[in-house]
Amino acid sequence: MIQLSVNHLLYLVEAARFTILLSVIAFVGGAVVGLPIALMRVSKSRLLRGIASGYIQFIQGTPLLIVLFLSYFGLGILGYKLDPLVAAGISFTIYAAAFLGEIWRGCIEAVPKTQWEASDCLGLNPVQQYAYVILPQAMRIAIPPTVGFMVQIVKNTSLASVIGFVELARAGQIVNNSTFEPFAIFTAVAAIYFVLCYPLSVAARTLERRAHAGR
């Protein structure tokens, strides 16, 4: 059996880079898809609202692990090469888009109705209303919960380990397989996750408090 050494810890820290990479992909992908979802949720068209809310309910009602398996094996059916990073990136985008869409819908709806009326009176068209009046205000409301959700994303990237993507959790399993010191290793892994997540949690709370102080 191999003794646990500093090199193992360095390996874990190196693997954490892939956790960060996957988190960034998930967040950017989730934001790009999530914004249209949020806009569809508040759209005047019943069809668009229905599609967006069906999508959100489906994703929020199934475990992320199953979404991961579905896109991993689903991609295989379509005949694509099963690169774990691609499969994980797609699943996390799908997952983050549903949650961000729902969070941002709340933020858009939180902008007072009078702002809509005022921008209507000024003769702005719907695109201008969103771009210059509603979204800038919704964004300020959205920042604290969005940062809070980033914590969820970072933690959930650990699930990508099950389809063979080597990030922090998978690296922990690999080190454990050669040294068999699960308690020490997984505690170290947990500590690295904590270092990544805790600043985000604190930031979310501080932003939340500051947002409320203004009102």
């Binding site: 959790a169 308690f183 505690t187 947990a190």
Partner: peptide, 22 residues
């Protein structure tokens, strides 16, 4: 704070593999 800032997967590993190794 510890539980809310670490993944459930790792918590499960610590309970199952970690405790049994202890």
């Amino acid at each position: 704070e510890t539980i809310r800032n670490t993944p459930l997967l790792i918590q499960i590993f610590i309970v199952y593999f970690g405790l049994s190794s202890l």
